[in-house]
Design a protein around this nucleic acid. Structure first.
Lengths: 217, 217
DNA sequence: GTCTATAATTCGATAGAC
DNA sequence: GTCTATCGAATTATAGAC
């Protein structure tokens, strides 16, 4: 095919063509990897999803593993990027910070429901992926949020319990969505309504815990 | 033909031999499948773990899929079996039921940490597995526990929110253990101490939520 | 850069001896 | 029942034409 004709064709093509081939492959890889995990994903699936030939995948990314590493890095980044910003908004009350946090993850997981289970399950088989992103620990322990959390923690309970509670109440309903949908007998729309209600409820429940006199005994 | 009930005949053999070959394969399969998931598991791994030859796996279980189905059924069963009993102990207070429940799952997941993430991640790729175990929905909605939960639910909040909270606070710290251990900077022993503290804490926190005046607004 | 065709390897499953 | 050896399909990766 002549080069001039090729350019003309590109310029008049559909929206799909505004992404470079490299980007198309990466986006397709992200979609398929998140849906099926590393081992269950075939490079052919990614090529098909991207609308390109299988050989191009190796041309751009050398191997399935290299492509996966890139996707995984992206996902981890997206998972924790919002966290650092929100946890350091000085001046806000802990209830406000919590509502920001829960809202953020509700919207993130609503657009990408497989993101949390993907990260958690891939981490099981390869826990050392976390070592690279060691910044999370410092980001949390040095954050404004954690400072006021410690101050408000009742009695001698480890403040980390409350961090666990926040993440559990926020993330697990997405991780276990298929099971919880089944158990509650709700369809997608109804279940999503429940999830949305939790944006307001979770911060209040956490507030209750922080204000209570519960101790470990 | 494989004979499942022949195991006792070899009672005088060494410790490894008290399990029939069929059981050894199934136990090995359970271990490897739970650790790596279906796709990442090779039948050769299972054979090696069981200390038998690869051909025997197909002799006893026909295929990797059939073996996996058996293991999955077992795991699902174990996951929900304790539930039905505990949720129907009439006469107990909701706080007592919760403590029984959290204790049960703490001990179950402590001996098999990969069980919850295994079930959740395999369900993602194959949500129809749940349809077989449809009994969960009825077990919950018709249980004594759910009856008193509904009675104690404040205002007009969907009682299922509290079921989600219980499961989230109980299961998620196991599902996300690698990540939470990293973030909290604890080793296995310290993290386990935290998990153990939650046996007493989670029921109290749930009690707080049920007694509060929080509404959806 | 992109394609077709194929090499190289892995893996599930089976045949057949004992 | 258990083993060794191997087949056949699937899959990653590459060679080479355009």
């Amino acid at each position: 095919m002549p080069e001039s004709f090729k350019k003309l064709e590109k310029a008049t093509d559909s929206l799909e063509q505004i992404f470079s081939t490299e980007e198309k492959i990466k986006n397709a890889a992200r979609k398929v990897f998140m849906q099926k995990g590393f081992s269950a994903t075939r490079t052919r699936d990614i090529a098909e999803e991207a609308g390109i030939n299988l050989a191009l995948l190796n041309y751009y990314f050398r191997s399935k593993e290299k492509l996966f590493e890139l996707v995984m890095m992206d996902c981890m980044q997206e998972f924790i990027s919002g966290l650092k910003i929100i946890l350091n908004q000085e001046g806000k009350t802990i209830e406000q910070l919590l509502e920001d946090l829960v809202t953020h993850y509700y919207e993130l997981f609503r657009s990408q429901p497989d993101l949390p289970i993907f990260i958690l399950s891939e981490m099981r088989s390869n826990p050392k992926r976390l070592e690279g992103n060691l910044g999370i620990k410092e980001s949390l322990s040095k954050s404004y949020f954690f400072k006021i959390l410690k101050a408000r923690t009742p009695n001698k309970i480890n403040p980390f319990h409350f961090f666990m509670n926040i993440v559990s109440l926020t993330v697990f309903p997405f991780v276990a969505a298929p099971m919880l949908k089944q158990i509650s007998g709700t369809n997608q729309e109804q279940y999503d309504k429940l999830l949305k209600e939790r944006i307001k409820l979770v911060p209040q429940w956490i507030g209750l815990m922080l204000n209570s006199e519960i101790a470990i005994s």
